[in-house]
Amino acid sequence: MVNEIAGIKTPDSQLAKDAADILREHGNDLLWNHSNRVYYFGAEFAQKENQKHEPELLYVSALFHDLGLTEKYMSDDLRFEVDGANAARQFLETYDLPENTVQLVWDAIALHTTPGVAEHKQAEVALLFHGVGLDVMGDRFEEFPAEKRNEILDAFPRNDFKQEIIPAFYEDFKHKPETTFGNMKEDVIKHFRPDYENNNFCQCILHSPWSE
C-alpha cells in the first residue's frame, strides 16, 4: 500500500489493510481504482474545508461502498448500496468497534447515492458522497486542485471508467430492477431497457388499500 498520495496519508492500520484485501479479493481493477480515488478525493475535500473526520472510517467506507456490485456480496433483493453497507457492518463487527462507529460507516455507504441527505450528515458520510460525486459525475471538479487530482489519477487511473461503470452497475441489479425505485440507479435500468417501468410514487398513493 502507498503511504501517501497528493499529500494525503493512506490509513495503514490492520483494519484498513484487511479492508483493502477484501476489495482486492472480491472486486476488480475498476472498483479498486474507483474506490481508492473516492477516498483521496473525499480526504482532500476534508482538508480543503477543514472538516474533522476519521480517515480510517472514510477509507473503509470508500473501499466497501461499491462492494455490493461484486458476486460475493450481491443480494437478490436489496439495493446494492445496502449490500455494500451490510458487508461493511459484518466486517467491522469482527473488530469489536462501537455500534455508533459501525452505523456511521453503514450510513455512509447506504447513502452514497442519495443527494439531498448524505451531504448533510456526519463528515464521513458527506465526504464519501462528495468523493463519489466527483469521480462518477465530475461534481465539484473545478474546486479540486488539478495537481492533486492528476497525482491521484496517476496512482489509480480511470481506464475508460465512464464506459465501464454503467454496465458494471447494470450487471448488479438487472435481476432486481425494482430496487432502483426512488433512486438515481433507475436511470441505469432505463439506459439498457428504455421500456422498463418501475413503480410510480403517485400511483402507489392512489392505489393504496386506504378506502377513501
Rank of each mutant, 00 (worst) to 15 (best):
V2F: 07
N3L: 11
I5E: 00
A6K: 04
G7R: 09
I8G: 01
K9I: 05
K9Q: 10
T10C: 13
P11N: 14
D12Q: 14
Q14L: 15
A16T: 06
A19R: 02
A20N: 09
H26P: 09
L31K: 02
L31M: 10
L31A: 02
N33T: 02
N33E: 05
N36G: 11
R37F: 11
A43F: 04
F45Q: 00
A46F: 01
Q47I: 05
Q47R: 13
E49G: 01
Q51M: 12
Q51P: 02
Q51T: 05
K52C: 13
K52A: 15
H53N: 11
H53Y: 15
Y59Q: 05
Y59M: 08
V60Q: 09
F64C: 07
F64V: 01
L67Y: 07
L69G: 03
K72N: 11
M74I: 12
S75I: 10
S75P: 06
S75K: 04
L78V: 06
G84R: 05
N86M: 12
A87L: 09
A88Y: 06
Q90F: 04
Q90N: 14
Q90I: 10
F91S: 11
F91N: 13
T94Y: 07
Y95N: 10
L97H: 11
L97E: 09
P98M: 08
P98L: 10
P98Q: 08
E99G: 03
N100L: 10
V102E: 02
V102P: 00
V102Q: 00
L104G: 05
A108D: 00
A108M: 08
L111R: 01
H112Y: 01
T113A: 06
T114M: 10
G116T: 02
V117Y: 08
A118V: 07
E119T: 06
E119G: 13
A126S: 13
L127S: 06
H130P: 03
H130W: 09
G131F: 00
L134I: 05
V136L: 09
M137S: 14
F141G: 03
E142R: 10
P145G: 09
K148I: 04
R149S: 11
I152P: 04
I152S: 06
I152A: 03
L153K: 03
D154H: 08
N159D: 15
P167N: 10
Y170H: 12
Y170Q: 01
K176N: 00
P177S: 07
P177E: 02
E178C: 03
K185Q: 10
K185M: 02
E186D: 12
V188L: 03
I189P: 01
I189A: 08
I189Y: 06
H191Q: 11
R193H: 09
P194A: 08
D195G: 07
Y196Q: 13
N198H: 15
N199R: 15
F201R: 14
F201D: 12
Q203T: 15
Q203F: 12
C204Q: 15
I205K: 12
L206C: 12
S211L: 15
